[in-house]
Amino acid sequence: MQIFVKTLTGKTITLEVEPSDTIENVKAKIQDKEGIPPDQQRLIFAGKQLEDGRTLSDYNIQKDSTLHLVLR
């Protein structure tokens, strides 16, 4: 499925993911596309910070959802 990741600069990254993918996995995909190390990434969805060990389906993230990427 496709999800979107919006950065603070207003750029939107499109990712191909599975509901069973972990947040860690998603961060690795963002690193592949953007070169941002996962340890600098914070992903936010519906006002919640997403934890590495959980999956997209744990957070009820569905296709065409938009996550927000904050760098630390």
Rank of each mutant, 00 (worst) to 15 (best):
E51H: 06
A46H: 15
N60Q: 09
T7E: 04
H68W: 02
G53E: 08
V5Q: 00
P37F: 10
V26E: 00
G47I: 02
Q2S: 13
K11P: 15
L71I: 09
E51P: 02
F4G: 12
L56T: 03
T22R: 10
V5W: 01
K11A: 10
G47N: 04
V5I: 14
S20P: 12
Q2T: 11
A28I: 03
F4Y: 10
I13S: 15
Y59M: 12
D32R: 03
E24W: 04
I44P: 00
P37G: 10
A46V: 14
K33L: 04
D21H: 08
G10T: 06
D32Q: 11
K63W: 11
S20F: 12
H68V: 03
V17F: 12
Y59A: 13
R54K: 07
Q41N: 14
R42V: 08
Y59D: 02
G53F: 13
K29G: 11
P19F: 12
I61T: 02
D32S: 11
D32W: 13
L15A: 02
V17H: 05
T7P: 06
T12R: 14
I36R: 02
S57M: 05
I23V: 04
Y59S: 13
Q62D: 04
S65F: 10
E34T: 06
L8E: 15
Y59G: 01
K29L: 13
I44L: 04
Y59I: 15
G10Y: 15
L67F: 12
A46G: 14
Q40W: 06
Q2A: 09
G53Y: 06
I3R: 00
L50F: 02
Q62G: 13
L67S: 01
I30F: 02
E51Q: 03
K63R: 15
A28S: 15
L56S: 01
E34F: 04
E16V: 07
S65A: 13
N60S: 14
P38F: 13
M1A: 03
P37V: 07
Q31E: 14
E24T: 05
T55S: 10
E18K: 14
K48I: 15
T12H: 12
G47V: 02
I36S: 06
Q62H: 07
D52V: 15
N60A: 05
T9L: 09
L71T: 14
M1Y: 06
D21L: 06
G10S: 06
L67R: 01
E16P: 14
N60M: 04
D64Q: 10
R42M: 10
L15Q: 01
V17P: 02
Q49H: 03
Q40A: 13
N60L: 04
I30H: 00
Q41T: 05
M1L: 11
Q40I: 04
D64S: 07
I36Q: 02
D52N: 07
Q41S: 14
L43P: 01
I30T: 02
V70I: 09
T12Y: 04
S20L: 14
S57Q: 08
G10D: 08
T14R: 07
S65Y: 12
Q31S: 13
L43S: 00
I36M: 15
S65V: 07
L56F: 05
S57H: 08
E34K: 02
E16Y: 13
E18M: 12
I36A: 04
S65W: 05
